[in-house]
Amino acid sequence: MIAKVVVMPKAVVNDPQGVTVKQGLRSLGFDEVDEVRVGKYIEIRLDTDSEAEAVEHVEQMCRKLLANHVIEDFRYTIDARGNTRGRQASPTDPLPQSGAGTAVRDSLGAGDPPLSNDVSPGNRAGSGSR
């Protein structure tokens, strides 16, 4: 089982990294870039068969260490497909809330159709747009 955690700066917190990256993208000619926010993506492989336990523990991990509630929000999905070593473990959509309709290209997942919008069966959030 693998937990995919996204930690983002809260909307009310200034994100100087995001501002700098936005400037970089604009200077590359991407004039449409309106806002950039930079967060963290964390994958945690869990040695457990219980999805309920995984959810409970990952929630605690986020609250106790992975995110600082003063400045950050977190979200996560638990991928029950389990063995996600190597290529098979290609980081799928790190932004599960973006919804299944969003096509996200995964540069590592060369074996998969590049822009399919299928909902991953093992993805607890059910929005595994990849």
Partner: peptide, 17 residues
């Protein structure tokens, strides 16, 4: 101290990076 909750608030990246 902020991370421990012994003081309130947090220290984030300097404005201007």
């Amino acid at each position: 101290l902020c991370e421990s909750g012994l003081l309130p608030g947090a220290l984030i990246r300097n404005a201007g990076m």
